[in-house]
Design a binder for these strands. Structure first.
Lengths: 227, 227
DNA sequence: TGTACATCAGTGAACGCGCGTTCACTGATGTAC
DNA sequence: TGTACATCAGTGAACGCGCGTTCACTGATGTAC
């Protein structure tokens, strides 16, 4: 028997790789529907996909692997959304109509994602990662970097407006600190807005104007109409 | 048999009300140890307290009630910590050494609480409350207001420095917006710091100086040492 | 002070359930000849 | 083109486990007389 290159066999009746996708999609749906990670069970997913429970072991060894796939996919989605928002904001005038337009667009897209996929957003950023194993096991490098991709979008948008006049008045500012402060505020707002809906939150636009104005441009509150 | 006022019977051998406390304490410990709410089970708690499982029904009808008690207790603790920090900051000079001292102290205490009780903090603010039942069921008014108590501490500290010179330069500012922006940033930092430990976070003091300076005083970045 | 009794916090056995996981299997798909 | 066979994705029955919850009970505590 000569050594033969293993060839990917054609998917059986459309299934095959599709089952994997179906499982991840079902997990995401289950998460958003129930609002709880522990509603995601092997048997529950199998039921939802319409397959027997052991069939899942062909694609995932673990229910945690499935949740990890959901999270990974969600991070891709977030990155795509931020990218699209940035492109759309920069597109029409080619130059810079207003210095903060792109930053504002990216931030708005971030908040929009968190609102559209609340449970996925919560799992992406709301789970405490205990650095299991002392100093730096680096067992899940991808997991640690996932959030960084979204941050880099934000950082890029902020950096691209550094040369603008509004930045000149803030000689001590540095881009990384700016982006960090902005991310922290965005996440805080997105998270609390979902957790404490009873709070009298302002509109997204108002909140964004406040945060960007103060954190990046050193401007005071956007004249909320108080005497 | 005449109507008799029901008198609280003396606790049996030190138990009685103590079991209830023990259950809540065990739940809090289990939450912090395992980092997961669904590690809190009736049987697990009974085991940890050293009591049979049905004994818990005498004090709680539900495992969710126990978690609610943990959260309620944690909110009390947070409020106490913020109160203490504020008092300590205002105590020595009786006047105002520096306008933002009290605000900074309250913020630092907030971050400290989130760091000392990470899982409880996560459950307090990280769980999405779906407004189940349309518009305003108001079924859990206490739950909705719990976060507001901590916010009021922050609001008070901010309000008490409004008359200071630093506020005069920001005519458009209003206290509520200030406190909201600050809370959002504090929570975002506390939450992300725990979720994404791999990120190069600054020291708490530096972060606080940045956030308070920009959000409340309109100052740029704290001269992070860049040319 | 002493005895009989009501109270009630907690027990221990038992139940049914959904879960993860295993195992031998089935049956359609694509391939060798 | 036709037949025999290897492959392998998915099946169905079965298991042991920990869970929430029920039930009749026990035994110490405090009270009535």
């Amino acid at each position: 028997v000569p050594e033969v290159e293993k060839v990917r066999r054609q998917n059986k009746r459309g299934q095959g790789l599709r089952l994997r996708e179906d499982i991840v999609a079902a997990a995401a749906a289950l998460l958003e529907e129930t609002g709880s990670e522990d509603a995601i069970t092997l048997r529950g997913l199998a039921r939802k996909v319409g397959v027997s429970a052991p069939a899942i072991y062909g694609h995932f060894g673990d229910v945690d692997e499935i949740l990890a796939a959901v999270v990974s996919e969600a991070f891709d989605e977030l990155d795509t959304a931020l990218r699209a928002a940035e492109r759309a904001a920069e597109d029409p005038s080619e130059g810079a109509a207003e210095p903060r337009t792109a930053v504002r667009a990216v931030c708005a897209a971030y908040l929009d994602f968190a609102r559209r996929r609340p449970q996925r957003y919560r799992v992406m950023f709301g789970r405490h990662r205990t650095h299991e194993g002392g100093a730096m096991t680096d067992r899940r490098p991808a997991g640690a970097l996932l959030g960084a991709a979204a941050f880099d979008r934000l950082l890029g948008a902020v950096a691209r407006t550094t040369g603008h006049p509004s930045a000149a008045s803030r000689p001590g500012a540095d881009t990384f600190t700016d982006a960090t402060a902005l991310w922290v505020a965005l996440h805080g707002y997105a998270s609390l807005r979902a957790s404490v809906p009873a709070f009298p939150w302002p509109e997204d636009d108002t909140m964004l104007e406040t945060l960007i104005g103060r954190l990046l441009d050193g401007k005071p509150s956007p004249a909320a109409g108080r005497p």
